[in-house]
């Protein structure tokens, strides 16, 4: 029981590491968006909205990791 809980806590930590990928992806996207705005400042509005949507989609994986961590910590199907 205790070991299952300990491993669950570790697993939750590892699951949250998915945020790293999302962070890198969003960083790339934002950098490209800044380049695009620098090249074409008049298209700022549409670039920004596209960036926001893209960042939100890229964030999904990180959110999945976060939800898995929550499940492991608070719902934990393994200890029932």
């Amino acid at each position: 029981m205790d070991s299952v809980l300990a491993m669950s806590a570790l697993a939750a930590g590892i699951a949250v590491l998915t945020a790293a990928g999302a962070g890198i992806g969003q960083g790339f996207a934002t950098g490209k968006a800044v380049e695009a705005i620098a090249r074409q400042p008049e298209a700022r509005g549409s670039i920004m909205s596209t960036l926001l949507i893209g960042a939100a989609v890229a964030e999904t994986t990180a959110i999945y990791g976060f939800v898995i961590a929550l499940l492991l910590l608070f719902v934990n199907p393994l200890i029932k």
């Binding site: 939100a56 964030e59 999904t60 959110i63 999945y64 976060f66 939800v67 929550l70």
Partner: peptide, 13 residues
């Protein structure tokens, strides 16, 4: 699922 978890996860976080 992705729509709901995105909103839920962001706000809960």
């Amino acid at each position: 699922v992705s729509l709901s978890f995105r909103l839920f996860g962001n706000i809960l976080g």
